[in-house]
């Protein structure tokens, strides 16, 4: 990712902590999907992080962020995605972001990913193209546009700011 994007994300993470950062990243990613003309719903059913629909395309995504080389996939993540696939069809996957200069979003199919600690590299063999490329082209501009607003929010309130930004983006459409 661009240095300025990395720097902004790192500062958001440092200020608001890893847990809130995960939720903020999820909102910013959802804005990216919205700008890619997807209809975006958050935690609509089965408690899956993002539901994105465009024409015949339907994605169910669990969002994971980290600053390490691995993320923890929980039983509920796997079950939630499986349930979505069984009940509603579409593509299930993980959106994984490592806060790193040499990383971007990995949007990967969930197939054969089991609960536990999973190396990020495993996701890269399942990337969903061109969706992943589209997201990564757009995401930096979203961070540049909204990063300062999220950063200026007081601790614990940033995800609400990000949520408002997402709602504004959805309402624009």
């Amino acid at each position: 990712m661009e240095a300025i994007v990395f720097e902004t994300l790192r500062r958001i993470r440092d200020k608001h902590g890893p847990s809130e950062f995960g939720k903020i990243a999820q909102k910013l990613l959802a804005i990216a999907f919205s700008r890619l003309c997807f209809e975006v719903k958050e935690r609509s059913i089965q408690d899956v992080d993002i539901e994105a629909v465009k024409d015949d395309l339907k994605y169910w995504l669990e969002v994971k962020t980290t600053d390490k080389d691995e993320v923890v996939i929980e039983e509920k993540d796997v079950n939630g995605l499986r349930q979505c696939e069984l009940l509603h069809g579409g593509v299930t996957g993980y959106a994984v972001l490592k806060i790193s200069l040499l990383s971007d979003w990995i949007i990967a199919l969930s197939g054969n990913i089991k609960p536990g600690t999973v190396r990020i590299g495993r996701f890269s063999t399942r990337k969903i193209l061109p969706l992943q490329d589209d997201v990564n082209k757009l995401f930096p501009s979203i961070v540049k546009e909204f990063g300062n607003q999220v950063l200026s929010a007081t601790k614990g309130k940033a995800q609400f700011v990000a949520d408002r930004l997402l709602k504004e983006q959805i309402n624009k459409k």
């Binding site: 240095a3 080389d69 790193s100 200069l101 040499l102 190396r119 990020i120 590299g121």
Partner: peptide, 23 residues
């Protein structure tokens, strides 16, 4: 294999550490 992959991740991590220092 998982250890080899972790080693590879670490080596990529080193590139990033050096980049970070320069930046």
């Amino acid at each position: 294999i998982s250890e080899i992959l972790k080693d590879v991740d670490n080596k990529f991590g080193l590139i990033e550490t050096k980049l970070n220092a320069v930046i």
